[in-house]
Structure formats: structure tokens, C-alpha cells
């Protein structure tokens, strides 16, 4: 082998890796849109707007990471929005009652995990379909927060530290606490999914629960854990959004479950289970946030916004499918 062919092979391998990456399609689409917007809209590529986009995508990012874990395990969590609202309410109310912020957050996280565990138990032990169990929990969560607050927003919990947690105050330059938390959680979860036994079992359970069970995997435990993780990240999102909005209206989580599912699916997670990546969840969250940002900057009339958002979702999924098809073709060519 000549040195030149070694270079060719390595560049080929890098190119193949990029082209075969499941997110290649959606990333290409995003890059195209970003370039077009940079040319067409002068305010788009400003540091202020970039910071806004990143801050605005934090809530959906937390939820999408949790949703991706559940989707990989072959589940679906419709309760993340109401879990977020309940846990935001817990954090806000407890702080307003005078509880130290850290303790209030621990309660909030524990309740998030608790809701996730209940979801998991309902699905695995009682055999209730994922969709129904988490839909029921969505309703229960909404009911709890509405009954608790009587529709009145929760106020009086904001303090100096909470402005940092909500990302309204920055640590250094444009860097905010939620950005760091998202990065840390993403890295940890990516390692968990890729490098640990639990991660492998999660994919195995999602791909084929029967085969996983036959291979000795405790499928129930894995699924319950996935829902607990989703509940945990919904609570993280709740703690964060309470700081971002500085009041907690009871319907604060409304519709976030759809955004979380959309972000995870845009990022390559499969509703049939066994597929999904943390980086994909972040790309999905970015896609949704970017879409809304562009709609606002361009000034698309509000009745068109839903059409545009829906079309972007379809385009993103098609872009992913096209890139997956391209990868398969390429692999076949390489094998023959």
C-alpha cells in the first residue's frame, strides 16, 4: 500500500463516516437553511440571535433527550409536558414557601423520576400500552397542577440564583447554566447509550423485546429505567423553564410532549424502537427552534406558521430517510 492510498483510504473513511451518519440529511438541510437565512436576513447570524436560539432550545432539548431514551427502548412518553409543569410547580411553590432552592430542586427531580417510574410500572407490570399509560399520566399531571394552582400562576419564587438557572443571567459572555447542563447531560447520556451495558440493553429491548428477554435482559427493568430517565429530564426541564418564564402558569407544559417527540424523531429516533441518538435529539430541538425563529424573523403570518412547522417536520424526516437510503446504497456498493 502506497502512502497516497493510505491517505485516500483515511479520507474515504472520514467521508464515508460523514455520509453514512444518520443525521447527515437533516444536518445538510439545516446548513442549507442557515446559509440561506444568513444571506437573506441580516439579523439572523448576529450573536444576539444565535444566543436566543440556543437559549430557546434548552427546554425542548432536555425533554427530547429523555424522549429519545424512551423511544430507543420501544416506548413513547406523552406525559413529559405535564411532568414538566408539575415539577416546575413543585420547585416554584417550595421555594416560595421558604425551602432552600437545592432541596426544592431535589424534590422536583424526585417527583419527576417518580412519575417516570409510575409510567414504567403501569406499562410493564399492568400491561397498559405505552401510549395509553402516558396519555393518562398527561391528563393526571395537568389535572394536578390545575387543581393545585386553581389556574393561578405560581409567583414569588425567583431569586438571583434562579435567573442563572433559567438562563436569563449568563455566567460568562453568552454562556448560560442551561447550556452547560445540556452539554453535560448529553455527553453523559451519549456515553451511557454507547458504552455501557445498560445502553446496549436499551437498544436491544427497543429492537426486539423477545430476543432481548431470551438473551437474559430484564426488559421490564430496562423499560422502567427509560421512563424514569425521561421523568428526570422532564423535571430538569421544569426547573429550567420556571426560571426562564419567572412565573409558572399551570398550562406551562402544554404541547411540549409533541415538540419532544418531534425533536427526537427529527433526530433519527424511531417510533418503532431500537433507534436514536442524543446528538440527534439536540439536532431535532435545534431544528424546531430554528424554524420558529425564522418564522418570527421573516414575519410569516400566524395562520401559516403551523403549516410551515408541519412541512419542516416532514422535510426533516424525509432528509433523514434519504441519507439512510444513500448510506445503504453506498454500503451495498462497497460490499460488492
Amino acid at each position: 500500500m502506497t502512502p497516497n492510498s493510505a491517505v485516500d483510504n483515511s479520507s474515504n473513511s472520514l467521508r464515508n463516516r460523514v455520509l453514512q451518519d444518520p443525521s447527515f440529511g437533516i444536518v445538510s438541510l439545516l446548513i442549507t437553511v442557515i446559509i440561506a437565512m444568513t444571506i437573506l436576513e441580516p439579523s439572523f447570524a448576529t450573536s444576539g440571535n444565535v444566543t436566543n436560539i440556543i437559549n430557546a432550545m434548552m427546554t425542548v432539548s432536555f425533554l427530547a433527550i429523555g424522549m429519545t431514551v424512551v423511544l430507543i427502548a420501544g416506548g413513547l412518553d406523552l406525559s413529559v409536558g405535564s411532568t414538566m409543569a408539575v415539577t416546575a410547580g413543585v420547585a416554584g411553590k417550595f421555594i416560595a414557601y421558604g425551602m432552600p432552592m437545592g432541596v426544592a430542586f431535589m424534590w422536583s427531580l424526585a417527583i419527576g423520576v417518580g412519575i417516570g417510574l409510575i409510567n414504567g410500572l403501569l406499562i410493564t407490570k399492568l400491561g397498559i400500552p405505552d401510549f395509553i399509560a402516558t396519555l393518562a399520566m398527561l391528563g393526571i399531571g395537568q389535572g394536578v397542577i390545575l387543581f393545585w394552582t386553581q389556574g393561578v400562576p405560581i409567583l414569588g419564587y425567583m431569586n438571583d440564583a434562579y435567573y442563572y438557572i433559567g438562563g436569563l443571567e449568563k455566567i460568562v459572555g453568552p454562556i448560560s447554566v442551561p447550556m452547560i447542563v445540556v452539554v453535560v447531560i448529553s455527553v453523559v447520556m451519549a456515553i451511557v447509550l454507547k458504552r455501557t451495558k445498560f445502553g446496549l440493553e436499551l437498544y436491544a429491548v427497543g429492537s426486539s423485546p423477545i430476543s432481548a428477554r431470551n438473551a437474559g435482559v430484564n426488559t421490564h427493568a430496562i423499560k422502567i429505567s427509560a421512563y424514569a430517565i425521561s421523568g428526570l429530564f422532564a423535571a430538569v426541564a421544569g426547573i429550567h423553564i420556571a426560571g426562564r418564564t419567572t412565573t409558572i402558569p399551570p398550562l406551562i407544559g402544554k404541547g411540549y410532549e409533541i415538540s419532544a417527540i418531534a425533536a427526537a424523531v427529527i433526530g433519527g429516533a424511531s417510533l418503532l424502537g431500537g433507534k436514536g441518538r442524543i446528538i440527534g435529539a439536540l439536532i431535532g430541538a435545534l431544528t424546531l427552534t430554528l424554524t420558529r425563529n425564522i418564522i418570527n424573523l421573516i414575519g410569516i403570518e400566524s395562520s401559516w406558521q403551523a403549516i410551515v412547522t408541519g412541512s419542516v417536520l416532514i422535510a426533516a424526516v424525509l432528509a433523514n430517510r434519504a441519507s439512510a437510503g444513500f448510506s445503504r446504497k453506498r454500503l451495498r456498493r462497497m460490499n460488492t
Binding site: 436566543n52 427546554t59 406551562i252
Partner: peptide
Amino acid sequence: VRDKGFTAAQDLLTKYP
């Protein structure tokens, strides 16, 4: 709702500060 109003206003203020 507040969070959507907040995000929308943030987007618009970057274009029209």
C-alpha cells in the same frame, strides 16, 4: 402564553432592537 411571548419577542427584538 408567557414563554411563547417571551421567545417571539426575543426573536423580534434581535431584528428590531
